[in-house]
């Protein structure tokens, strides 16, 4: 008798995992699983096929970097700088003391880099031509392509931004890729996000 029980017990032990496995099969076969479908999807999607994603509500410029082997666009910066071009004021002309407040950008608060590493104007702005930025090697960089400058320190963020894990696309997931520039979200002079009150509140999960 004991042997029979033992045998049936063993049989059950073998059978139960098998039954669980079999029961699991239809579930797997029916959906295929998201990860499996993702792994099998190798063909790039022609997102230009979605004709409603053509209109761009914002001013953009083609980026000087490549993304997934193709091109993309970034939001312009120069259009949102109120007193561009800088060289209109930044000339060799002498400035009167009484105009100083107007001319010295006293509204700009520098809070970029911590402590002794805090940045000063000339580390990003070109010393000779104020219509441009310049990187640490002295190469002139257009205001619309400031990612070239920011990326020399924030290279991890730039890598993620190029791929799409940092920053964000503008308006459309389809159509030509248009992403926000660094300066669309971050103030270059004080890049950390400000604290603010939340817009609303969330109810607990059981309500």
């Amino acid at each position: 008798m004991k042997k029979i029980f033992l045998r049936s017990g063993l049989f059950c032990l073998c059978f139960v995992p098998g039954a669980v496995f079999l029961a699991g099969l239809p579930a797997m076969a029916s959906g295929g699983g998201v990860m499996e479908r993702i792994h099998h999807a190798e063909e790039p999607y022609d997102s230009m096929a979605i004709e409603t994603a053509y209109q761009q509500p914002v001013k953009t410029v083609r980026a000087k970097e490549s993304w997934q082997g193709g091109t993309f666009r970034v939001l312009t910066r120069k259009d949102s700088i109120t007193r561009f071009r800088c060289s209109v004021c930044h000339t060799d002309k002498k400035v009167l003391v009484k105009d100083g407040a107007l001319f010295t950008h006293d509204d700009i608060v520098m809070n970029h880099g911590k402590g002794e590493n805090g940045l000063v104007c000339i580390q990003c702005h070109d010393e000779d031509n104020r219509d441009f930025l310049s990187d640490s090697s002295g190469k002139k960089i257009d205001f619309d392509h400031s990612y070239q400058l920011c990326g020399q320190c924030h290279f991890r963020q730039k890598r993620d931004w190029l791929g799409g894990a940092h920053g964000k696309r503008d308006a459309y997931w389809a159509g030509e890729r248009v992403v926000r520039n660094c300066t669309s979200c971050h103030s270059p002079h004080s890049p950390a996000f400000k604290t603010k009150m939340p817009e609303t509140y969330s109810l607990p999960l059981d309500q």
Binding site: I38, A41, E42, G163, G164, R169, W173
Partner: peptide, 13 residues
């Protein structure tokens, strides 16, 4: 984004 597009942002993430 589109999970079936290997070039999409979501796939990069």
């Amino acid at each position: 984004g589109n999970l079936l597009d290997p070039d999409s942002e979501i796939r990069y993430v």
